[in-house]
């Protein structure tokens, strides 16, 4: 079987990660594929995985009784999908619905959490990378909240 290491190394999220950490990650990773319309996860389910997207497009949605499903964000190649696995109580807050056939690497959350707990250097490395994602998402969300294109009355 072909190892996932070269695929992982290509992904922007893991770029430049030291080989010893990469090996630790590979042992928690699996190659996955989702078809259009499929849910990768749904609100309230246990957040036991996270994904780095290689191809395709996934919508993060939340249902509204009057507006149907509202899309908060779409993620695509190069993006990270899911961070609820990092913090207790490890439950998804949004639905992840596939818009276009999506290929990704899935990481087993428990496996990765255990590895990070055992090796704090790895844990720190992962936290740094996630912090970057959090900040980018937060900034984008702020800009989204500003509703800069709205008509002012």
């Amino acid at each position: 079987m072909q190892t996932l290491e070269p695929i992982l190394a290509e992904h922007p999220f893991l770029q430049g990660l030291a080989p010893e950490y990469m090996q630790l990650l590979v042992s928690c990773a699996s190659n996955v594929r989702f078809n259009s319309g499929e849910y990768i996860f749904q609100t309230g389910q246990a957040a036991d995985k996270f994904y780095i997207v290689r191809q395709g497009k996934v919508a993060l949605e939340t249902p509204s009784p009057t507006h149907g499903e509202l899309t908060i964000l779409t993620v695509g190649p190069g993006d990270v999908l899911g961070w609820s696995w990092l913090v207790s109580p490890y439950r998804w807050h949004f639905d992840a619905r596939v818009l276009e056939v999506t290929r990704a690497i899935a990481f087993d959350a428990r496996c990765l959490r255990d590895k990070c707990d055992a090796n704090h250097d790895l844990g720190y490395e992962m936290m740094k990378r996630f912090a970057q994602v959090f900040i980018e998402r937060l900034e984008a969300t702020r800009l989204q909240l500003l509703d800069v294109y709205a008509v002012h009355t």
């Binding site: 497009k57 919508a59 507006h67 149907g68 499903e69 509202l70 899309t71 908060i72 964000l73 779409t74 695509g76 818009l99 984008a140 989204q144 509703d147 294109y149």
Partner: peptide
């Protein structure tokens, strides 16, 4: 910035 189900493009 805001999408609904009718929109299949990017949201963000």
């Amino acid at each position: 910035d805001r999408g609904t189900r009718h929109w299949r493009g990017d949201v963000g």
